[in-house]
Design a protein around this nucleic acid. Structure first.
Length: 267
DNA sequence: TTATTCGGAAATTAAAAACA
DNA sequence: GTTTTTAATTTCCGAATAAT
């Protein structure tokens, strides 16, 4: 429809519902019915509730996310081109922070897990956890599983630790902060290992611990993301097929419990 | 030919960040 | 406090298409 008012005319402060839908200039300057509706024989209404304009949330967050994404992809590209110095920096992005996990901290957290969490989450055997701890030094997956387990336990409100295990232990928030640090460490270090292409039972349990942790921290979107991740990894390991459970009967029973726990939690 | 649709540019608006 | 920057929404231009 040609616009008799011309292109230089300022925009009307509010277009009626029909003109908005039709994407045409609402002629009549707020009068009801507007000229377009009159010409088309339409009921001219202003029922639509306008949305709030302008940015939502923190802009800095969006920008920093974009910067981080670009930084990561640049580092990855340089690493692929074999630039020695940059490549080593890229590797450092996933390197461990050894001072975070002391033997005492691991022991306390594992004890707490088997005392308080195991009854509702019987997904790992105590002996297997011991073996996993033993393999932490030469297995990224083992390290991430233990870091995730400790992080998960540290954010539990009723966990008590022997004195001097973590910095500023007497402060009320220190355990939760330390827990979050460990979760971030596990997620960061795990990125340096291709657990998606070559998943193991450790990968699934680690993702499940991330789910539990972020759920406790009220980060529900992140939590559901990790639960879905755990379920997908279980699918990749064919845990939905009976053939997966051949062999060691005790281990098979534990794996079944893990699979069903994932299945039920996702409902 | 005239009428209608709709992709997307431009204008508008509001919130966050920067500045004084 | 004010100004600037940024991001979200709204208006509606105008090319493409449909109807007559």
């Amino acid at each position: 429809m040609p616009d008799p008012t011309g292109p230089s005319n300022p925009s009307v402060k509010r277009a009626c519902d029909c003109c908005h839908k039709r994407k045409v200039k609402c002629i009549g300057d707020g009068t009801r019915p507007c000229k377009n509706c009159t010409a088309a024989g339409l009921t001219c209404t202003y029922n639509a509730i306008p949305q709030k304009k302008g940015p939502k949330g923190s802009r800095a967050k969006v920008i920093s996310e974009l910067r981080e994404t670009q930084r990561q992809s640049q580092l990855a590209a340089r690493a692929r081109h074999g630039l020695g110095f940059e490549a080593s920096q890229y590797a450092n992005a996933f390197s461990r922070t050894p001072e975070l996990l002391s033997v005492e901290l691991i022991t306390s957290c594992v004890d707490f897990f088997f005392a308080k969490m195991y009854p509702t989450q019987p997904i790992i055997h105590r002996q297997k956890v011991g073996e996993t701890i033993g393999q932490m030094d030469n297995s990224t997956e083992a390290y991430c599983l233990i870091a995730a387990l400790c992080g998960y336990m540290l954010i539990q409100p009723n966990l008590t630790l022997p004195a001097g295990i973590i910095p500023d232990q007497e402060l009320p928030q220190s355990k939760v902060n330390m827990g979050q640090t460990l979760l971030e460490e596990a997620i960061r270090v795990r990125k340096g290992y291709d657990y998606i292409e070559t998943p193991s039972i450790w990968s699934i349990i680690t993702s499940f611990f991330f789910f539990g942790s972020y759920f406790c921290l009220d980060k529900h979107n992140t939590a559901w993301f990790h639960l879905r991740e755990a379920t997908t990894l279980a699918q990749l390991l064919s845990m939905h097929e009976e053939s997966h459970y051949a062999g060691d009967a005790v281990e098979a029973a534990r794996r079944r419990r893990l699979y069903w726990l994932l299945f039920i939690t996702e409902r």
